Amino acid sequence: MHALPLIHPRRWRRPTPSVYLWPPTTPPNGNLAQGRPATASSAVQSYAAGNAVDGNASTYWESSGNSFPQTLTVDLGEAKRIGKVTLKLPPSSDWATRTENLAVLGSTDNSAWSTLLGSSGVTFNPASGNTATLTLDAADVRYVRLNITANTGWAAGQISEFEVYAADGGPTTPPTTTPPPPTTPPAGTNLARGKSATDTSHTQGYLAGNVTDGDAGSYWESNNSSFPQSLTVDLGATQTVGRLVLKLPASWGTRTQTLSVLGSTDNAAWSTVKASAAYTFTEGSNTVTVTLPASGVRHLRLTFAGNTGWPAGQLSELEAYTS
Rank of each mutant, 00 (worst) to 15 (best):
H2N: 05
A3T: 07
P5N: 12
L6E: 14
L6I: 03
R10A: 11
R11D: 09
R11E: 11
R11H: 05
T16C: 05
Y20C: 12
T25W: 10
P28A: 15
G30M: 11
G30S: 03
L32F: 06
Q34E: 10
Q34K: 00
P37R: 02
A38Y: 12
Q45S: 07
A49F: 06
N51H: 13
A57Q: 08
W61R: 00
E62A: 04
N66H: 12
P69S: 01
P69V: 00
G77C: 10
E78H: 14
A79K: 09
A79V: 06
A79T: 03
K80G: 04
R81Q: 14
K84S: 14
L87Y: 01
K88M: 00
S92F: 01
T99S: 13
E100L: 06
N101H: 12
V104G: 01
D109T: 01
D109S: 03
A112W: 06
L116F: 12
G118H: 05
S119D: 10
S119E: 15
S120C: 12
G121Y: 11
V122F: 07
T123P: 02
P126H: 07
P126C: 08
P126Y: 09
T135R: 10
A139I: 11
D140M: 07
D140E: 12
V141E: 09
V141W: 05
R142W: 00
T149R: 01
A150G: 15
Q158S: 02
Q158G: 00
Q158P: 00
I159W: 08
S160P: 15
Y165R: 07
A167L: 07
D168K: 12
D168V: 02
G169V: 10
P171A: 15
T173A: 15
P175L: 09
P175F: 06
P175C: 07
P180M: 10
T183M: 11
P186T: 14
G188H: 06
T189I: 09
N190C: 06
N190Y: 05
A192G: 02
R193Y: 03
K195F: 03
A197Y: 08
D199V: 14
H202R: 05
Q204Y: 14
Q204A: 13
Y206F: 14
G209S: 02
N210A: 11
A216Y: 02
G217C: 06
Y219V: 03
Y219T: 07
E221F: 04
N223M: 11
N224I: 10
S226N: 06
P228Y: 08
P228W: 12
Q229V: 09
Q229E: 13
S230F: 07
L231V: 02
L231Q: 05
V233P: 07
T238K: 09
T240G: 00
T240A: 03
V241H: 06
L244K: 02
L246C: 11
S251Q: 10
T256A: 12
Q257P: 14
T258A: 15
L262W: 06
T265C: 03
A269N: 07
A269F: 02
K274L: 15
S276C: 04
A277F: 00
Y279G: 02
N286I: 07
T287K: 08
T289R: 10
V290A: 07
V290Y: 08
L292K: 10
S295C: 11
V297I: 11
V297S: 10
L300V: 10
L300W: 03
T303Y: 08
F304N: 13
F304D: 06
F304P: 09
A305S: 13
A305T: 13
W310I: 00
L315A: 11
S316N: 06
T322P: 12
